[in-house]
Measured scan of single mutants.
Amino acid sequence: ATNIVSKVKWYNSTKNFGFIEQDNGGKDVFVHKSAVDAAGLHSLEEGQDVIFDLEEKQGKAYAVNLRIK
């Protein structure tokens, strides 16, 4: 899926990962520091509106092509 609009559930800049809620009630989506860095960001804030693409690797959903709404 591409261009999903949602909100950051939480992000831990010390552990370099977090999760984004899915508005459709699906499972929370993992977001890694590499996606945050690629977006030119230093961190994410809880409740922040984001747009991302969903990529599945080894049966897990990852946020990629992250951008701020």
Rank of each mutant, 00 (worst) to 15 (best):
S13N: 11
E21G: 13
S6Y: 07
S34V: 09
G47E: 04
L54G: 01
A1P: 10
E56Y: 15
A61T: 14
A1V: 12
A63R: 01
D23M: 15
A38L: 10
G26R: 12
D23V: 15
L54D: 00
K33A: 10
S34Q: 10
Y62D: 03
A38T: 08
I51R: 05
K7L: 05
T2R: 14
H42C: 14
D23W: 15
L41S: 05
H32T: 05
S43H: 12
D28P: 07
K15E: 04
I51V: 11
V64W: 08
I68Y: 07
D53M: 04
S6R: 07
Q22T: 13
K33L: 05
D23R: 15
H42A: 13
L44H: 01
E55D: 07
K15T: 07
K60D: 05
G26F: 10
A38P: 03
S13K: 14
D37L: 15
G25F: 09
V50G: 01
K27T: 09
Q58N: 15
Y62M: 09
K27C: 10
A38R: 11
D53S: 05
A63H: 01
E46S: 15
Q58S: 12
Q58A: 13
K69F: 14
K69N: 12
D49N: 11
K27G: 10
K7N: 04
G47F: 05
E21K: 14
T14A: 13
G40M: 07
F17P: 00
Q48K: 05
A35Q: 10
L41K: 05
T2L: 13
K15Q: 07
Q58V: 08
D37W: 15
N24W: 11
W10Q: 02
V36R: 01
S13W: 10
D28C: 07
V31I: 10
I4V: 11
G26A: 11
F52D: 00
V36F: 05
D23G: 15
D37H: 14
Q22D: 12
H32M: 05
D49Q: 14
G59L: 05
E21D: 08
K57E: 08
N24R: 11
G47V: 02
Q22H: 14
K27Y: 09
T14I: 13
F17Y: 15
V50P: 00
K69G: 12
L66F: 00
D37V: 15
D28H: 06
E55T: 09
A38D: 08
G18V: 02
K9L: 07
D28I: 05
A39Q: 03
S6N: 06
I4P: 05
A61W: 15
H32I: 03
N3D: 11
Q48G: 04
H42N: 12
K69I: 15
Q58C: 15
K69S: 12
E21N: 11
L54Y: 07
L44E: 01
S34D: 07
A35K: 04
V64L: 04
T2H: 12
E46Q: 14
G25R: 09
T14S: 13
N12I: 07
V31Q: 00
Y62E: 06
V36H: 01
I68H: 06
G25H: 09
V64A: 07
V29S: 02
Q22I: 12
A39S: 10
K69R: 12
H32D: 04
D49H: 14
L66M: 03
I20N: 01
